[in-house]
């Protein structure tokens, strides 16, 4: 602690910062700012949802039953679990336990992949019954005595457009998150992180939690009510 910052200059400290602490705080603040841009990006879609729901509440209540709450609920738990493993990862990074950090990062990756797989089956299940976003929307087919054609009502297309756009952009964020986690895991396996420097893990964690939070809201709004 005692030395002048320019003397004991750690490898990760960039030249224009005075201390690691300043660099860490700056990076974290930058990430929070980025996160609110993400929130505002999604807020546009939440606004659309709110407006169209308030205009056509009965349509939204009817057609949202097409979405399977079991799949959505399962995915909610999966994402929550992945948030938990990220938080654990940071905990172990702070305690210099690189092995457990890597284990938790890999677990997070697995959860993220499970989420996408479930999403894939959800989407293809919808497509099979002609439930597409936009002009191609044409619900048909009978499953377990449930005639999809009954969902072919005005503004049902809007609900599914909003559903696909929201979950689609969310899924895009999950995919980006997977990419970043792979990179972080590789860096962790090279032993780059320690209690002294784990900024990238912390920032990726923040991003990932936000992806989780968005889903926490998407799930009840789209699947349940």
């Amino acid at each position: 602690m005692a030395s002048h910052p320019l003397d004991g200059h750690p490898a990760h400290l960039e030249h224009h910062f005075v201390s690691s602490e300043q660099q860490f705080d700056a990076a974290k603040m930058g990430m929070w700012l980025f996160l609110i841009t993400e929130i505002l990006l999604f807020s546009g879609m939440f606004v659309l949802y709110t407006v169209y729901r308030s205009w056509h509440p009965e349509v939204f209540a009817l057609v949202s039953e097409v979405l399977d709450w079991r799949m959505g609920g399962f995915n909610t738990l999966v994402l929550l679990a992945s948030s938990f493993t990220v938080a654990l990862g940071i905990h172990y990074a702070q305690k210099n336990d690189n092995r457990k950090l890597i284990i938790n990062l890999v677990l997070t990756l697995i959860f993220a992949l499970i989420f996408l797989v479930v999403k894939y089956f959800e989407y293809t299940g919808k497509f099979a019954h002609g439930i597409y976003p936009g002009a191609a929307f044409d619900p048909h087919g009978i499953v377990d005595g449930l005639d999809y054609a009954k969902y072919n009502v005005p503004y049902a297309a809007q609900f599914f457009s909003i559903y696909f756009v929201m979950t689609g952009i969310h899924a895009f964020h999950v995919i980006v998150g997977i990419g970043v986690f792979i990179w972080i895991t590789l860096r962790a396996s090279r032993g780059e992180f320690s209690a002294a420097y784990y900024t990238p893990v912390e920032l990726t964690g923040l991003y990932w939690h936000l992806v989780d939070i968005i889903w926490i809201f998407l799930f009840p709004l789209l699947y349940l009510i």
Binding site: G44, L48, A135, Q158, S161, I169
Partner: peptide, 21 residues
């Protein structure tokens, strides 16, 4: 700025998929 981002995305989707927003 994020809001113009999502607006342009929606405009794009509106053209290609006719999402009807």
């Amino acid at each position: 700025t994020p809001v113009i981002g999502i607006t342009m995305v929606l405009l794009f989707l509106e053209r290609f998929l006719s999402i009807g927003i």
